[in-house]
């Protein structure tokens, strides 16, 4: 659906160039929710703004829905942009227009008939749950309501892609969750491809199918969220996940003072339906190993349940090795950490 080829973006004049993106390649499938996570200044904002050419890349190509946007003239680009919805961190609604008129804006650009506008806008107002606010002005709405208007406006022209530029960063946690749920709903309902950029791992974990980690203008790691989240490879990714799990200090404390001869700390990862099975309990029962839980999480990534336990096995060396082997055989992921 979206294909970025050798995308490079540089700012400034010769001699004092800063490079925001350097030769970045990315491919996003139709119907998926794709997240890009990175620190501020990593280039993620530039990246998403290149997808509808709000920023023109210095070199490289941007393909959306089989069309090379970078090759288009002004008029054709305007037409293509109508198929790409976008929502923003600060909502960017017209302060002089009502909720209704804001949502009708993209429809009026293409001279839609009054009756069609009325029908479409009413439908969207219901979808985002703002039917009773149709005649209010943005200043009379809360942040979450404003973003709902933004989403309705972005959907008005029946886009194939929705770009979310830090769409929840200005919202409180509860409102963030409700907006994320709405995005997930419309992704399913309309099979809409959603690209979102964020600096919060929580956002990625809640709704994304795949994630790319951007650092210093390039993608350092990408893949299905379950994979990247549970087995991060790059240091930047680990850092984001550590923030989310907040397990650094507590774990160090738990791992202190072990002799290592008769005990072994391991990280066990459960994924999908295995999360709720009593695999660990059965296995230790069979091998006669005891365990203490040092740390654990059971949660979901998008709608996939997962569990991650750090446990200390106690028993003979052979029995511990046997336990680990059995767990691996049953499809769990086990990593020895101490």
């Amino acid at each position: 659906m979206i294909e970025l080829k050798q995308l490079t973006k540089q700012y400034g004049k010769a001699g004092r160039m800063t490079t925001a993106l350097s030769g970045l390649n990315l491919s996003i499938e139709k119907g998926e929710i794709f997240g890009v996570i990175g620190h501020s200044g990593a280039g993620k904002s530039t990246l998403i703004r290149c997808m509808n050419l709000l920023e023109r890349p210095t070199s490289g190509e941007v393909w959306v829905g089989g069309v090379n946007l970078t090759s288009l003239g002004k008029k054709q680009l305007q037409a293509e942009r109508r198929k790409i919805g976008m929502i923003f961190q600060h909502f960017n609604l017209l302060s002089s227009a009502t909720v209704y008129d804001n949502i009708a804006f993209p429809l009026r650009l293409i001279k839609t008939s009054k009756a069609d506008i009325e029908r479409k806008v009413s439908e969207l107002l219901n979808l985002v749950g703002l039917a009773e606010h149709r005649d209010k002005y943005p200043s009379q709405l809360s942040g979450g309501q404003k973003q709902r208007v933004g989403i309705a406006r972005a959907l008005a022209s029946d886009p194939e892609v929705l770009l979310c530029d830090e769409a929840t960063s200005a919202l409180d946690p509860q409102t963030t969750d409700s907006i994320l749920r709405l995005l997930l709903d419309i992704n399913k309902k309309f099979n809409l491809t959603i690209v979102l950029i964020t600096h919060e791992m929580h956002v990625i974990q809640s709704i994304c199918d795949r994630v790319a980690v951007i650092h210093q203008g390039g993608i350092v790691e990408q893949g299905p969220v379950t994979e990247v989240f549970l087995k991060p490879k790059h240091e930047v990714t680990r850092e984001f996940i550590r923030q989310e799990m907040d397990n650094g200090d507590a774990l160090r404390l738990a791992l202190q003072g072990q002799d290592g001869s008769s005990s072994q700390a391991v990280q066990i990862t459960f994924l999908g339906s295995k999360t709720y099975e009593s695999i660990l309990s059965h296995t230790v029962h069979e091998t006669g190993v005891n365990f203490a839980i040092l740390q654990g999480t059971i949660s979901t990534i998008k709608e996939t349940p997962y569990g991650q336990l750090i446990v200390r096995f106690e028993g003979s060396k052979g029995a511990i090795e046997d336990t680990i082997r059995r767990l691996l055989d049953q499809g769990l992921d086990v990593e020895v950490i101490h």
Binding site: N52, Q78, M86, F88, N92, F105, P106, R153, S157
Partner: peptide
């Protein structure tokens, strides 16, 4: 931002 949003809407 509003002008940018209008550009993004074509």
């Amino acid at each position: 931002g509003v002008i940018e949003a209008a550009h993004a809407m074509g």
